[in-house]
Design a protein around this nucleic acid. Structure first.
Length: 464
RNA sequence: GGCGGCGUAGCCAAGUGGUAAGGCAGAGGUCUGCAAAACCUUUAUACACCGGUUCGACUCCGGUCGCCGCCUCCA
């Protein structure tokens, strides 16, 4: 039985979707004022695991990830760059999708942009006005918290604890109560705005997620995810404005991903430990290794992202790649290995047992490694039959469908020169002309081809 | 100050009231012309520290130290 840790109640709960067989998910996406950093990708990879696993479990998944393409930071940055916000954000939106692809993150079904859903937001604010939850000051519209008594149920925050302080946005001096939050920001000089029934202005931060999630998923849906930092105030405010408007439960399961730290410290630009995906790729790390590292720690645990960790992940991946190559090039023997058949089944079962428990990834990866080990032993003994191979492949495909970490092992056709050199060396070896054979092997190595002599003849692979 | 999380081998990381999964790295060995790969063996008198509860705690309770997070726009 699939269970998730629900922030709403701070405990693991069985996953029972609104509609059987369907899973409706909203994930807080990027604000496109800059490249995403590895912390963002930890969230996206957690959400990727979530959607992949739900699909594996047979749910028809609809995932929506918003793209915030208008906000204070974007306005500021685009002004500095002398561009309008559409032009400014395009580059980062493109980069965002390119990064997702590099990390093998599956595409969500929808990527709505805030600027393209202004009417939905206006409609939602109007509903709140009609129900008396909203008021207007200085051309901005605010949500009145005192009218929504269940405020704080997600973050368990004590409203009394929120006192006026230095952090209050100076733009929002018109609020009745400092704890109220803005739904619609009145037009200001030099800022982009939309002419709407609420007057000229732009959306507040929280309203886009409520409006777009309900637009694509309905007024009530299954899962909403994001980083832990969003619990308060963002998600709390989403709940308030959504449930106040509809009178229904907004989201059934709230899943939050813990932040990562880098080399033992909080990631920050000033500390020099702030990495975008691009930074790491430029240093020569493989995107797959980054995915592996970000995926391999449970999403609710703090992950210490280090260069050493990346190196370890790279090694793990190389070992898995060697295994896949070995499996591919192995020649099946007659018969069927019962024990191995059992092991293949147990591998998938073990993974499922682990992931059912709030996506507990570590034991899931352990069952992958256990399968690898058992297959290697059988391969060593020459006890792997045809049917075993297809069962093992099936198990591995399951792992890859869910984790997306198995290295690709396409057998690229070798060019004629290399093919000849390999044959030449093989002949030399047969004739015990080892010096000549070694020279050719070195030559191939310089060309990026690694040779391994096995009982079944020579095996080659590309240098990692 | 308020609230919360964590501290397991060189590194990463599961886990449980009855004496510690897995991965990476290391060491020794088998195989190999040599290598590589693989396999075998090995690497935590014990889970931050100090008390307590218990027949028994790494696992429960209390305290200490350390790291981290949230407390209005940061995934």
């Amino acid at each position: 039985m699939l269970r998730f840790y629900n922030t709403l109640r701070n405990k693991k709960e069985p996953f029972v979707p609104l509609h059987p067989e369907k899973a409706l998910i909203y994930t807080c996406g990027p604000t496109v004022y800059d490249y995403n950093h590895i912390g963002n990708f930890r969230s996206y990879i957690f959400e990727d695991l979530l959607r992949r696993y739900l699909k594996f479990k047979g749910y028809q998944v609809t995932q929506v990830m918003n793209i915030t393409d208008v906000d204070d930071k974007i306005i500021k940055a685009s002004k500095a760059a002398g561009k309008d916000i559409g032009e400014y954000t395009r580059k980062y939106i493109d980069a965002f999708f390119a990064d997702l692809d590099a990390l093998r993150i599956e595409r969500a079904e929808f990527y709505p942009r805030a600027t393209e859903h202004i009417p939905q937001m206006v409609l939602l604010v109007k509903r709140l006005q009609e129900k008396g939850f909203a008021y207007t000051r200085e051309n901005s519209v605010y949500f009145r918290l005192s009218d929504f008594p269940s405020y704080g149920k997600l973050s368990k925050i004590d409203l009394q604890g929120i006192k006026p302080g230095a952090r209050i946005d100076l733009d929002e001096y018109g609020k009745e109560d400092v704890r109220d939050f803005v739904l619609w920001k009145g037009k200001k000089e030099g800022e982009p705005f939309w002419e709407t029934e609420l007057g000229p202005g732009r959306p507040g931060w929280h309203i886009e997620c409520s409006a777009m999630s309900m637009h694509y998923l309905g007024e009530s849906f299954d899962i909403h995810t994001g980083g832990v930092d969003l619990i308060f105030p963002h998600h709390e405010n989403e709940i308030a404005q959504s449930e106040a408007a509809t009178g229904r439960q907004f989201v059934r399961y709230w899943l939050h991903c813990r932040h990562l730290i880098v080399e033992g410290e909080k990631m920050s630009k000033s500390k020099g430990n702030y990495y975008t995906l691009r930074d790491l790729l430029e240093e020569g790390y493989e995107p797959q290794a980054i995915r592996y590292l970000l995926l391999s720690t449970h999403y609710r645990r703090q992950l210490n992202f280090t260069k050493e960790g990346l190196t370890q992940a790279t090694h793990s991946l190389k070992n898995l790649g060697d295994f896949l190559l070995r499996l591919r090039q192995s020649k099946p023997v007659e018969g069927y290995n019962q024990a191995l058949g059992k092991a293949a089944k147990e591998a998938t079962a073990g993974m499922e047992r682990a992931l059912d428990d709030d996506l507990n990834i570590s034991p899931a990866l352990a069952s992958l490694h256990q399968l690898v080990k058992e297959v290697n032993i059988s391969l060593e003994r020459g006890e792997v039959g045809e049917k075993n191979i297809s069962e093992i492949r099936g198990a591995l495909e399951n792992f890859d469908r869910i984790t997306g970490i198995l290295p690709a092992v396409e057998e690229e056709p070798l060019d004629e020169t290399i093919r000849k050199l390999i044959a030449e060396r093989d002949a030399a070896r047969q004739n015990k002309e080892y010096h000549k054979a070694d020279l050719i092997r070195e030559k191939l190595s310089r060309m990026g081809i690694i040779l391994e002599d096995t009982r079944n003849g020579v095996r080659w692979k590309r240098e990692p």
